[in-house]
Amino acid sequence: MSHSHSSSDSSEQLAPGMVDHHHAHHFANASEEFEASKQGMWLFMVTEVLMVGGLFVAYAIFRSLYPEMFKEAHHLLDWKLGMVNTIVLITSSLTMVLAVAAAQRGEHKKTVRYLIVTLLCGLAFLFVKKIEYTAKIEHGLLPGGLFNFEHAAEYAKSHGTTLTHEKAPLFFSLYFMMTGIHALHVIIGMGLITWLTIRASRKEFGSNYYTPMELVGFYWHFVDLVWIYLFPLLYLVG
């Protein structure tokens, strides 16, 4: 079954900025296909919101049960590193927007350049995350049953605070689950952006076809948005 015509079929003249692309046979025209893909992506984002929502609900329940514990435990997270990551991700969202805009105008080189910057931002984010995780793991600030109170107390002391609440491990369970699932999304997003970079360097996007750019853009902004919620909820409690 032919999903798109082979390019030899086409003898149409392409306007500047356009690329040779054909919509799938079951759509009436390319804009229908674009609309459908966009709607599909929005719907997928809804499922993502609900999935992450489950974690936020768990967070809300435990925070309302043990507010003082959250206050105590969050001091052990480094808000400066969190802030750095926030800035990094917001920057990457911006470059992603610029990449999509460049693709729409058929500026292939610019598209690739912006995509690479976005990718680098993603890498930087993961690097900072790695620094944070390593520090937590070293000092026994691990999820639930793996939490080490002795090490944690020492670490807290060296930070000029205390950590005594018996439910403190829960905070780190939530921290690792929430940031871990978020980081997983960042990694998937980076994979998608790599794929886009390859396609863009092959000049596959133009003013008449940039659907994958637009959709991955949605996804990347979503990942950014989730972090913008995670940052204050975990790093800036009370």
Binding site: L43, V46, T47, E48, L50, M51, V52, G53, G54, L55, A58, F62, L142, P143, G144, G145, L146, P169, L170, S173, L174, F176, M177, I181
Partner: peptide, 25 residues
Amino acid sequence: QVLATPVLAITLLLLVAERVLKIGI
């Protein structure tokens, strides 16, 4: 399917994490 299944997904993921990482939720 679209609205409810993601909540199952995260629940099951938390259950696996509960066993592997002992998250204690």
